[in-house]
Design a protein around this nucleic acid. Structure first.
Lengths: 363, 363
DNA sequence: CAACGTGCTGAATCAAGCT
DNA sequence: AAGCTTGATTCAGCACGTT
């Protein structure tokens, strides 16, 4: 009976194979701090789409994204949300990502079940797939809903960490991040993308830094190739993954084995100092251009450690790239962008180069 | 009776005072090209919000934004959407703007009533109000839903005009625009903002340029201080405004009197090739620009013979310029106009050049 | 001069689907 | 059936300048 299974220990840092609703029903009540869910979008695709050069778009045509009707999709959604709600701690929170095909149904279901929406967050893709037919706007964003378990319930929000990640100004509800491709994109044996909708690590990085703490339990009921687990592991959170496709699980397991946790000081997050500059240093970290724990070096060879929220630490000294630089030089101020370098292939490279890359991407 | 009122003429460029559902029920069926709606957001604000300096934030606390529950809000939403759908032409479209408080309920209701979502569009505010309490992300965007009346229905989309607006690249689904303030913000007699949620004209400009044509009828059931009407008038569209607050209507009337329509050349908009007159390939033969028996050549050097009726033949293969091109490439389709060239003075010249000559003659 | 680094350009690649 | 429909990124190739 459920009672027995519910008493079972929480299977931390494992991937459970099966239907997420059923599996969540077997987990102990009020045991999870954060849920990140990337459910099927119900894209309702028909026929095939070709580019102007007649090549075929490799679209999402997997069985798991097919539903007979909005009603069928609603039934599915309400079932997994109810199961998710039961295992969520009273002060836990849920994030769900979707597109216009499904997100309105998900949002209404969340509200109907008593979740309390805290923000909707727009992921603005810096490099979306264009609209090949020229019949609509380029679909350049996806929407995440962040909700607490109940109206008035407490929830985790690391305001200052996100502010630091955003170089000293409040984090907004729209996040500009590139889609997942290149080396970060998991490949199958044939060298093809292993999953059609793999999310970028930078997105999960921001969610987990902002809405969870080290040691928290983060559950992902649609684990796919395990981005949530990978970022949770790096950030020192425990994860629980649920996925019904064994092929995806195999890819995720191999991926998680490769992932290393960032060290402890890198994970500590500022309590709230800031500076003025305009392009967030934290983005270099979120995007994986610099790893938390990596050392930066100044002109005199002094080293500073990069932390997950985009701040630096040297001995007891913590702060932004500018603050730490100024303190080391005993100067009233310092432009951290030109002050710090990182090391690649034995060469010192100014971090400003990375900022220029981001600026180029953003146009 | 409704029947009588429904037969009434369309009240163009007027503001009707009253409940929008009732008034729309009295308008003729299938008579409106575009609906832009900015319904109450159901913000559910409690208490008051103060800035760090203890000044009070002038929030939306008007009676029109209070609903007892999500159910009450849904009932309201489904009623006005049904009335809106009846007066929409089969090839018309609707835009609805909202925030996370209401947009998920609006989106689900749209889908449930048979509207077909074409895009969701994020208005990314370049200057949003900060989050004073530091308890959530800065609420820096609102969401618009663009939907056709039915799945598969035609709709107006001025692809090339929006592309031109966007510096020559496809318009994306996220629009960065400042909020409405300064001189554009309508003031009441006391010099205070006349309406708490006045939308910027830039937003409506983009919607109307992209999703309507000059002479179209644009209806706004929550007219407020008349931004939709003002931009419609400037752009040479007819508007119908519905508003139940006489105070807002007075402000809107005065505003509309001040607005001047742009002149004709300013209103002309980059048109796509689609809207150019269709020229049958056979006309090139009829006019003697190509001779029957002459050979066309594709990119791979394969040749096809032009016949007197404007069809091509290669070996046993006969058909239109498009069909033969597709068959030779083993492709599902082909644009024969760009696929085939003829030879003049040893040079390959695309046949599309001849079509352009004919179009130029047609004006 | 050879060897190598830099920067430009154009081809190739690839992206939650859209008459 | 006609005929209209991309943009960001990566990487190889190559000219050119420096060591």
């Amino acid at each position: 009976m459920t009672k027995t299974r519910a008493a079972a220990r929480l299977p931390l840092n494992e991937i459970l194979c099966g239907d997420c609703t059923e599996i969540m029903e077997g987990l102990p009540e009020a045991s999870v701090d954060l849920i990140f869910a990337d459910p099927p979008y119900n894209l309702q695709l028909k026929g095939d789409l070709r580019r102007p050069d007649n090549s075929r778009v490799d679209a999402v045509d997997d069985a798991w994204d097919r539903f007979a009707s909005f009603e069928a999709y609603d039934t599915f959604t309400r079932a997994w949300l109810a199961a998710a709600r039961r295992i969520l701690k009273p002060e836990g929170a849920i994030w769900v990502i979707g597109s216009y095909h499904n997100i309105f149904r998900v949002g209404a279901a969340l509200q109907d079940q008593g979740f309390w929406i805290l923000n909707d967050v727009v992921w603005r893709k810096s490099n979306p797939m264009p609209n090949f037919r020229g019949k609509r706007l380029t679909n350049a964003h996806e929407t995440m809903i962040w909700a607490g378990r109940d109206q008035g319930a407490k929830y985790t929000f690391n305001y200052d960490a996100l502010k630091a990640l955003n170089d000293g100004v409040q984090m907004r509800s729209d996040w500009v991040l590139p889609i997942c491709n290149g080396h970060e994109r998991e490949k199958d044996a044939a060298g093809e993308k292993a999953h059609p909708t793999q999310k970028p690590q930078s997105l999960l990085h921001r969610v987990l830094v902002g809405a969870s703490n080290p040691g928290d339990v983060v559950l992902d009921p649609f684990f796919g190739t395990g981005t949530t687990g990978a970022v949770a592991k790096m950030l020192g959170r425990d994860f629980i993954g649920i996925e019904r496709d064994q092929g995806y699980i195999d890819v995720a397991r191999a991926r998680l084995d490769r992932v290393r946790k960032f060290d402890r000081t890198a994970l500590e997050v500022t309590a709230g100092k800031r500076t003025e500059p305009r392009v967030p240093f934290g983005q270099l970290v979120e995007r994986g251009m610099l790893r938390p724990g990596e050392m930066l070096v100044n002109g005199r060879g002094q080293q500073a450690k990069v932390r997950a929220d985009g701040t630096l630490v040297v001995d007891g000294l913590k702060g932004s790239i500018h603050q730490v630089g100024a303190a080391l030089d005993g100067a009233p101020s310092c432009n951290g962008w030109t002050y710090w370098s990182f090391v690649r292939d034995g060469q010192r490279v100014p971090i400003d180069l990375l900022r220029q890359q981001i600026r180029a991407e953003l146009g």
